[in-house]
Design a protein around this nucleic acid. Structure first.
Lengths: 144, 144
DNA sequence: TATTGTTATACTCTATAACTATA
DNA sequence: TATAGTTATAGAGTATAACAATA
């Protein structure tokens, strides 16, 4: 009827916690938190995103993101400016320093991923990422 | 070099956050948090676990778990007693009320899982759970 | 001395709502 | 009126270390 060992959210959670804890320790040595890394990683491609996009990209809640961006702005990792197209929206962009620290951390992130996926074929990884995307999309229908 | 869309921790995190947020809303209507549900779910099979086991089962950090158990004990969901075999260890057990609320929540949990896994075959689910377990095991080697 | 768990502290993230500004 | 974001506040989780009890 209900077996924890076959319950998907259980497996997702424990795997996610383990990955985040390990990388979080490395991030802490660089003075960063995991949510900060998520913002940097989301900004890495393209270099800038609207706040609304960052909420989607990072799964960080709006008010948390707003203050996180303030902190990171104060530390010189990114800039915040109003959008030209819609002055209600805010565009967040990496600074040179933000790019530097992100570039410095990417090898650690990829190394951890490689270890986590040890023994997986390229094909298996594609299948896994596809499944996680399908679940993410399906879960949009879960009622709050 | 680094693509967020192909980065495993990114997919794990956003899927986990979405699942936890949706079920957390249901739990809140029962006066519970997601970590509380994790404790209940871990205790469901067998009805009791040592604190050290619960840390593994729930991925909740030791001091957080200790106070969480205190809260749940005060609310009558579970009991805490010293182990007979080793009086350093604490055994946590569901009360009748704890069993009742867990039993009440299981259908919601299973319903959410069913929606999240919509379109998946039984075979695919087995493959997915197997992959997540392999990643979890591999990730034990990540250095902190 | 080592292990299991509790408590204290400071910090971060979340949730909610009130607020500001722009549309 | 609606939308994007900020700020305020309270609550919950995390990290670390100090502490107590037991081995």
């Amino acid at each position: 009827m209900f077996e924890l060992a076959r319950f998907l959210p259980y497996h997702i959670n424990r795997t996610g916690v383990r990955l985040a804890t390990a990388f979080g320790a490395e991030l802490a040595r660089h003075g960063l938190s995991v949510p900060m890394w998520r913002v940097l990683a989301a900004l890495w491609q393209g270099g800038e995103r609207k706040s609304a996009d960052l909420i989607v990209d990072t799964s960080i809640e709006q008010s948390t993101l707003s203050r996180l961006v303030t902190t990171m702005e104060q530390r010189g990792m990114l800039t915040r400016r109003r959008s030209n197209h819609d002055a209600r929206a805010v565009v967040v962009a990496l600074t040179e320093e933000g790019r530097r620290v992100t570039k410095e951390l990417i090898p650690y992130a990829l190394r951890n991923e490689r270890i986590a996926l040890r023994g997986f074929s390229r094909e298996e990884i594609d299948i896994l990422l596809g499944m996680l995307t399908r679940i993410y999309d399906n879960a949009a229908d879960l009622k709050l």
